[in-house]
């Protein structure tokens, strides 16, 4: 490509090329622009304490989005994630508070239930070949019902050990929540696995073209079941973060977790068609939502505008993905 565009190449093709090469650039630019905008609008935005707060506020949806990203990369979608999270958090806190189970065992049991749900999602998708949308819509309702069969009352006596990830440590005068760090570590692990392991490459391959992946010797069913199980594990961890953040086991939680996490994934430039996207995009996507919510609130703009902006951003992000894909 030369510096002067020729008639054959449309004017915007370099931007498109850039975005196709690194689809995360668009979302990152949007995030930075949003931060600059809010910094000029309110003097309370640009502080370590406020950024730490934003990070803490997105730690639950961010962790949910890790699992959602994995599933979407395979060309699937997971509607059940928020309810699986709610089930594990209510079960874990309930086992401790109502049944006297040791906190460690309760956490393990909670996570095990999540993984079981993930395996169920994966198995129904692969063995019977049902569409993920329908499978996870079903498990969403099952988990919703199980939460309410188990308890309708909020569990308030949560032991301190479960609140650890809601505690903070200080860097200078800025207090940082341990849970935010856990979320960042989980993103780093997912990034390493997706980028540098055979398993990670299989996830992309299955999402891009399952038939080609199968012919290339990838056991697609095993990859899919593994992805749904790992995703569900991340929902379980999100549940623990939720408990740490709010200090309670809340049976009302998680009902919009699916759409919130899909929003983060899409804002991060991941294609809903599967096979294209970067895990760090989901983090950026979650942060974009968090920054807008925080910034608009600091400015005193009603929260309905936060919803409006999120809607516009989602459509923008999908348009960018679609246009850059079509340009290929």
């Amino acid at each position: 490509m030369t510096a002067a565009p020729t008639a054959a190449a449309p004017r915007h093709s370099r931007v498109i090329d850039l975005l196709r090469g690194a689809p995360i650039l668009g979302p990152v630019a949007a995030l930075i622009l949003a931060c600059i905008f809010f910094a000029t609008q309110t003097d309370r935005f640009l502080s370590g304490a406020n950024f730490s707060l934003i990070l803490q506020q997105v730690m639950v949806v961010g962790t949910l989005a890790i699992g959602q990203e994995l599933v979407i990369l395979t060309g699937g979608i997971d509607l059940s994630n928020g309810m699986i999270m709610a089930l594990s958090s209510v079960l874990t806190t309930g086992l401790i508070a109502n049944s006297g189970v040791h906190p460690f065992l309760a956490v393990v049991l909670g996570l095990a239930v999540c993984v079981a749900f993930g395996v169920l999602n994966g198995w129904l998708t692969t063995a019977i070949g049902l569409p993920p949308f329908i499978v996870t819509l079903g498990t969403f309702n099952i988990a919703y019902a199980l939460v309410r069969i188990y308890t309708t009352a909020t569990i308030t006596s949560v032991p301190d050990s479960l609140l650890f990830f809601g505690n903070t440590f200080s860097i200078g005068s800025t207090e940082i929540t341990y849970g935010s760090i856990l979320m960042l570590v989980l993103f780093a692990i997912a990034w390493l696995v997706l980028g540098s392991t055979r398993a990670g490459r299989s996830v992309y391959a299955v999402g891009d073209n399952p038939e080609a992946a199968r012919l290339a010797g990838i056991r697609t069913s095993r990859v899919l079941v593994g992805v749904y199980a790992m995703a569900a594990l991340s929902y379980g961890i999100a549940g623990l973060l939720l408990v740490a953040r709010t200090g309670v086991g809340d049976p009302q939680a998680g009902q919009t977790g699916n759409l919130d996490s899909i929003t983060a994934v899409v804002l991060g430039g991941t294609s809903l068609l599967g096979g294209r996207g970067q895990i760090m995009g989901a983090l950026v996507g979650a942060l974009i939502v968090g920054v807008f919510r925080n910034g608009l609130q600091l400015m005193g703009v009603g929260s309905i505008y936060q919803v409006l902006i999120t809607g516009i951003l989602v459509i923008l992000a999908v348009s960018v993905d679609y246009l850059s894909h079509r340009a290929k």
Partner: peptide, 15 residues
């Protein structure tokens, strides 16, 4: 939606 209310409260305190 408890978490949404928690988030709004934190942001307002920061404001």
């Amino acid at each position: 939606d408890n978490e949404g209310q928690v988030t709004a409260m934190e942001n307002m305190i920061n404001a």
